[in-house]
């Protein structure tokens, strides 16, 4: 806490949304042709984008792969490979040798795969689901809206916790904890008709309200959003 301690580095966990390349083959020539074809349609979007290589859909796992060459291939099309996901254990040493991280416990939105040899997908979800709650959320209760927004029509009381992958809209006082964008969506916001929260979190960044009065907008309608890794709370309108 105190500034006497070193503040040069800080290690923190954060969640990011990353493009994932699902490989169905180790045929490097085939991959290269297809990637070139696909990326030519959206060059700027994927330029220097970090990507994760997902081997979960690999057809033939007996094949060995030269990760160093695969990595160079991706570099050539201006992608920055950072790691492998669902990599068969037998290939771990190869991946580490090529300086690729082994990723575990990812969450992705699976659509029915096409028959092409490799595809690029965004892990963020396209379809927004909304969960609506019309009863008070009481102390000790927890509500989670996966893959979308959470709408609450009654108070969120002190000691209660409301969580969403997307935005949270509370048409009543927020007195408990609200966590939006928990899968890493930094654009998620929290809205309430009366801001009396104990804690607000957006995409893993959080803010406590232990000052007195907690915020300028205390008991007013307010929104919270993330700006430069800080949670900003402003009055609406």
């Amino acid at each position: 806490m105190s500034k006497q301690h070193s503040t040069l580095v800080e290690l923190k966990g954060s969640a990011f949304t990353l493009p994932v390349i699902h490989l169905r083959t180790f045929d490097l020539v085939g991959i290269k042709t297809e990637l070139n074809e696909r990326l030519s349609q959206s060059v700027s979007f994927f330029a220097h984008a970090p990507v994760v290589i997902d081997l979960g859909e690999l057809k033939d796992t007996t094949l060995s792969c030269d990760f160093t060459k695969l990595k160079q291939l991706l570099r050539d099309v201006k992608l920055i490979p950072i790691g492998v996901y669902q990599c068969p254990e037998i290939l771990h040493p190869e991946a580490i040798k090529a300086e690729l991280a082994i990723l575990k416990n990812g969450v992705s939105n699976k659509k029915n795969g096409s028959n092409t040899k490799s595809t690029i997908k965004q892990t963020s979800t396209n379809k927004v689901q909304v969960k609506i709650i019309d009863k008070p959320v009481r102390s000790g209760q927890q509500i989670y809206a996966p893959n979308g927004d959470l709408v609450i029509l009654s108070p969120v009381n002190a000691g209660a916790e409301v969580i969403a992958d997307g935005n949270i809209y509370i048409y009543a006082p927020l007195r408990g904890r609200a966590l939006a964008g928990v899968m890493g969506d930094t654009t998620a916001r929290i809205f309430t008709l009366s801001m009396e929260a104990q804690l607000i979190s957006i995409a893993g960044h959080y803010r406590l309200f232990d000052e007195d009065p907690p915020v300028k907008v205390y008991t007013n309608s307010a929104q919270a959003y993330l700006e430069d890794k800080h949670i900003i709370v402003t009055q609406i309108p």
Partner: peptide
């Protein structure tokens, strides 16, 4: 009041 709120949640669950 806080404990009562918790208890209301338990009644509902």
């Amino acid at each position: 009041v806080r404990d009562s709120d918790r208890m209301l949640g338990i009644l509902h669950a």
